[in-house]
Structures are given as C-alpha cells and as structure tokens.
Design a protein around this nucleic acid. Structure first.
Length: 322
DNA sequence: GGATAGTTAGAGTGTAGCCC
DNA sequence: GGGCTACACTCTAACTATCC
C-alpha cells in the first residue's frame, strides 16, 4: 500500500466537509466553510506513516459524510466532546464523550452522521498496517499480534473503552500544544505514540495467555484478589492476607498478578487510588485533603507527591486548572 | 496546600531446599 | 527437573513531624 492511499482515508472525509486542503501529506489547519459551520480541523503529519487529526468544530446543519476506505488501516479515536455516529453496511457505532476506540479497517464503505449545533472535539491517530506491524515486532523479530488475525473474516473491528487518567493527561498536553503557533510536529508525535502504546497495551496485550503458568481457576482467584483490593482501597489487606483470602499462596499471587495486570499488586493499587483521585478532583466536589483521605492516603502531603509523580502536577494545581 | 527529613513496615526479589 | 515454600535481604512506599 502506498502512503498516498493511506492519506486518502482521512482526505475523503475532509472533502465531504468542503475543507480547503492544500496537500495530502502535510501538516495544516483547515477552517470549516462558513456556510457549513464554525471551527477547524488540524492535521499533523509528522512522518509519512502517521497522521494525527484534531477535529474541533460545530455544524449549522445535520450532516452525513460518506467515507470509503480503500487502504487497510489502524485508527485510534478519542472523543472528548459531542457525538459522532458511524454507520456501515454490517456495523454501527457511536462515539461518545469520554470514550476512545481502536479500529482496524480492511476496506469499509461507511457514513458519518454529525448533529447540528453540537460542538465536537475529537482526536484521531491513523497509521497504515505496515507501521502497526513494525510496532508489534518483538526483540527477536517475531510478531504474535497480526492485523489479519485481529480482523479475522471481518472488514472492520472496533475496541472501545473509557478514557483513563493517564491518556487524559497526554490528550490535554497534545491539545494545548496544538493551540500554540510554535508547536513542532515531533511534540505532537511523541504524545500520539504514547497514546498508541497505552491503547495497544489495553486492548491487545492483556489477553495474551499462551505462556501463562496459571490455570483458569488461579486466574479467577487473582481477579478476585483485584476485586478485594478495589473494594478495600482505603484499608487494603497485606499481600499474605490477600493470598489467604483468595486461597492461593503468595508466590502465585505475586507472579500471577504481574502476568495478568502487568504490575505488582501494590503498584496496581497505587495506580487505581490515583486514578480515583484524578476523577474526584476533576469532579470538583472535594478538596485535596478530602480526596487524599477518600482514596486511602492518610497524609495529604504524601498523596500530593504520589499524584505529582503520576500526572506531572500537584493535585491543587490540577484542581485550579479545571 | 505543599515540601522535606527521618523512620518503619512490608513489598519485592533471590535462593536454598523440599516434594512429587 | 519443575513447582512450590520459606526465609533473608534490599528497597521503597507510606507514615509522622515540622516548617514555609
């Protein structure tokens, strides 16, 4: 597949919205036609095999845009505001705020449905299959995750999940950078690669079980341990107590937990505590002290330090930004 | 609300040894 | 030999106290 085909996928959509595109493979900002609505679409093409599109606009009338993807591609979409419905011959999907999707498309003839007077804010990252395969290569040059295997006999496959705090922080950084005039492509590319990494880990890696030392019953018990941890977030059991609660020895708990969730038991607990804190602070109904207490930290100072390590800013600073 | 220093409990890791 | 347990050691997360 040529890179021109890859860029055609997004470009047909731009044509439908009557956007004044200059060159298919260049970074540019395209304002919506004044008769269609207000806002713009920014395209960042840091390299020929990566395209990042930030859509921020509002249409004056309900609009349907046809899109026919000729080239197979992988697309990551983050919906931050508004809704966009996609209807194909054998599928239907609606992007909703706070969700993200990872899509694999072979050849799709679909239609986007966009509502009138509804502000839309979306960030999309597209890459061709060859690049996706290069990303999936392991140290010894082999590849266990393959585009064709993911799709099977289908022409389209979509994974969906809620945007987690780590991705939320990266998204804000990208959007802030995109608003500056002096932003360079490499800054946007770094963020996009981080988002791709998080999405691939979340959707494609977690289910790998071929090399597992765990039986189905062990996995069940480890999932039970995770439930107990989340229920007792403010007063968690020790590792030994937890292993007794699920009737598994601590050796298997430690090894198994790391295998399934990719981190140690208490690293997982810490992440979940900070994720919860992120949402509570975003909500704005609690101050830093209350949030610190609610997620199981008795010392707000230590909580602030952990929050800063995870999200790059102090909880108080984060609250003020919101 | 946040930073820092000192302290401590316990998580993480490596390994010897036991059992099947 | 593989799977597991038990134990010792290291390291770090979380704490308190104090200060700005």
């Amino acid at each position: 597949m040529g890179m021109t085909d890859f860029h055609q996928n997004f470009n047909r959509f731009f044509d439908e919205l009557q956007l004044q595109r200059q060159r298919a493979d260049r970074t540019e900002k395209m304002a919506l036609h004044p008769q269609m609505g207000e806002g713009a679409i920014q395209r960042f093409v840091p390299r020929p095999d990566l395209e990042i599109v930030i859509s921020k606009y509002k249409l004056y009338q309900k609009h349907k845009a046809n899109i026919f993807t000729e080239a197979p591609m992988v697309e990551l979409n983050y919906c931050l505001q508004g809704r966009r419905k996609t209807v194909g011959s054998d599928f239907q999907h609606e992007f909703a705020p706070g969700n993200y999707t990872l899509q694999f498309t072979r050849q799709v003839d679909a239609c986007f449905e966009l509502n009138e007077h509804q502000p839309l804010l979306m960030l999309s990252i597209g890459l061709p299959v060859s690049t996706f395969h290069r990303f999936m290569e392991e140290l010894n040059g082999t590849r266990t995750i393959d585009f064709s295997h993911i799709l099977g006999r289908h022409s389209f496959r979509i994974f969906q999940n809620a945007i987690d705090p780590s991705a939320s922080v990266i998204l804000k950084q990208i959007l802030r950078a995109a608003e500056r005039h002096d932003t360079k492509n490499f800054e946007i590319e770094c963020g996009a690669l981080e988002l791709l990494s998080l999405a691939f880990r979340s959707f494609l890696f977690d289910d790998k079980q071929e090399l597992s030392i765990l039986s189905k019953s062990d996995m069940q018990k480890i999932r039970q341990a995770r439930e107990i941890l989340l229920e007792r977030m403010t007063n968690p059991p020790t590792l030994v107590e937890l292993s007794r609660l699920i009737h598994l020895n601590d050796y298997k708990l430690k090894i198994g937990f790391k295998e399934i969730y990719g981190m140690t038991v208490f690293s997982y607990l810490r992440n979940k505590r900070l994720e919860k804190a992120f949402f509570l602070l975003q909500n704005g109904s609690m101050n830093v002290n209350e949030v610190s207490c609610a997620v199981g930290y008795s010392n707000p100072s230590y909580f602030a330090e952990a929050f800063r390590k995870q999200f790059g800013c102090n909880p108080g600073e984060f609250t003020r930004r919101f």
